[in-house]
Design a protein around this nucleic acid. Structure first.
Lengths: 338, 338
DNA sequence: AGGCATGATTTGATCGTTCAAAGTTAGAGA
DNA sequence: TCTCTAACTTTGAACGATCAAATCATGCCT
């Protein structure tokens, strides 16, 4: 390790006191300009860097922002989080913070992780992802008045916004996808989504039905609910197409589902239906690398922007500004599949 | 924030001194068993957690391990790093450490980031990925005797191992891929890789040529060098297949390249060659979600294990054990493409 | 010239932990 | 009984920064 330069060293060389150095760096306006200039020169010359552990001990601020990473999943949808994480790392760095990673298997474990972290590394704030109904984590953090932002809106009954959040307007995404299909002449457009209860899933279904309603079409019988996954998507697509010969397009709640649906759409099995080959359009959600690779039209979430916005809301929260939120519009990336 | 419990609180309640509490936790063997027991009970009861900032100030250890995340790339190969990161987060947590993220655009910037970090958060160690020839980072860290491990072997001239590293045996991977093709009866097997000079790329090419040599086959004219990317892979595949009508299989240095190659292989263009449709086998590298999605046979790297091994080598390095290294074997995941 | 407000800088204390050294206790041996 | 050693525990200092309060300058007004 190189020689450590402390604030006392800088003070000695600059011929001022510790506190003046501290002020020159943290509260420049209370220091006479020429003094500040001299101090800054010495800081530069000696390569002084504030020791955050010492600062943290006094001020309680660590400069850390904690965020959870999940265990390795199927990898398809995981890329969404990863892109967000990369964006957040950069945004945090610009705001003078760094990201600290932790893991947790469920809400309760995550709250235990909060306690661990707060006792040990004392992060200044948390970033939560994948919010859901009855989210224990947000209420826990709110109770303790700990600063945090969620990527994902609060899917709760409470009407008032009590914490900052950023989200992507999923309904607008599926709505745009459905309208794209309508504009292309499709009339029977089905939806493959997740079981009701997940805020994100319900929201994405809503956009689809809204678009159909806008075109005066009846969504009855055109929706399937299944867990996320490629195989599940395949089954749902097969079921839909077999049951309704007029369906010509599928909007899916994720690229995983869409990938499965696409298998069915691209290799129609005569057994489902006796009629001639139907070309089925498929649209996914998240614009993952997989979508790009296989030519799947998909709804793209502006993750880098979302990350940057999360960070700026967090900065404001750390300054004590009352919470606000932001709903970002996604956009459709049109490829071969629709 | 909840009431802070300090070591002094524990000491008071347990009726011992601060230092005894500290010893009970950090050096249990010097404390009488019944004293230790009592202390631990009080620790539990009060929910005491060591304040790492204070500890760090005294011991210099922060409990942090720093790792760089790159800006969002094409996403296909990025997933390799992300899986590694997830594994590392878990492994680090088990060893009582946490991961700290930072970004940097190149080697020089990264060294500047080292300096920033060491002055500020003082990570105990670094994990470096994507090592390369003339890696400035490793020499910088070695000079200062800072603990680190690389995921990626040192691609340098120096014969002696001077730092711990973990890597996946890329040559063994492409060799296995090639042998798989040989076993399936292929005889003209081409390789699409990166320009020479990148250790990883050269290594992967080596495995392919070694397998051919082992089967008594001549690799001349069967290799193409191009930058990474789907389009590049497509061009290279087209070039190879057009130039040599006997080629029946392609081994690629990445899934990105393989994805492009697969486009060519799956939709043969009569213009390249007048003869009948050739079914071309394609094998990629990294077993990304994309490979899984499109049925691409690919070489899988044991990333979770690699992460765990990195962590254990790091733990040893922190204890002062001399550096050692590990070359993990990858394995082939066979899908429809080969 | 004296008093005073204002601005700039310094001093002493403190955050919570661990190190180093000093203190205490109990048991063995003389 | 007294000494000595070994085992255990306590005490004081220090890590490097910032807060709070004190000190020192300076200029303005009466």
């Amino acid at each position: 390790m190189a020689e450590k330069v402390t604030i006392a060293d800088v003070a000695r060389v600059a011929g001022v006191s510790r506190q003046t150095v501290s002020n020159a760096l943290n509260t420049p306006e209370v220091v006479r300009p020429e003094t500040r200039q001299r101090v800054l020169e010495v800081v530069e010359e000696l390569g002084y860097r504030v020791n955050l552990a010492a600062r943290q001990m006094r001020t309680g601020r660590s400069g850390l922002i904690a965020i959870r990473v999940d265990p390795v999943g199927d990898g398809i949808n995981g890329s969404v989080f990863d892109r967000f994480l990369h964006g957040l790392t950069e945004a945090a760095a610009e705001a003078g913070h760094r990201l600290l990673l932790y893991t947790a298997a469920d809400d309760h474990k995550e709250i235990a992780a909060f306690e661990d972290l707060l006792g040990a590394h004392e992060p200044d704030a948390f970033v939560l992802t994948s919010t859901h109904h009855k989210d224990l984590r947000t209420s826990w953090l709110l109770e303790r008045q700990l600063p945090f932002v969620t990527f994902g809106r609060p899917w709760s009954e409470l009407p008032d916004v009590r914490h900052p959040w950023v989200d992507v307007d999923g309904a607008a995404g599926t709505e745009a996808a459905t309208e794209h299909l309508l504009a292309a002449g499709h009339r029977r457009i089905a939806f493959i989504g997740w079981p009701p209860g997940s805020g994100v899933g319900d929201d994405r279904r809503l956009g689809w039905s809204r678009a159909l309603a806008g075109a005066g079409l009846d969504p009855t019988g055109l929706s399937r609910e299944t867990d996320d996954g490629s195989v599940e998507g395949e089954d749902a697509a097969r079921d839909l197409l077999a049951g309704d010969p007029d369906i010509t397009a599928l909007v899916c709640a994720s690229d995983s589902l869409a990938l499965g649906a696409l298998q069915v759409a691209r290799s129609p099995n005569p057994a489902w239906h006796a009629e001639a080959y139907r070309r089925i359009a498929v649209i996914g959600f998240d614009d993952t690398p997989v979508a790009k690779a296989i030519g799947l039209t998909s709804v793209h979430q502006p993750l880098t922007e979302a990350a940057a916005r999360c960070m700026s809301l967090l900065s404001r929260a750390l300054e004590g500004t009352p919470p606000s939120h932001l709903l970002l519009p996604p956009f459709l990336v049109v490829r071969q599949s629709a």
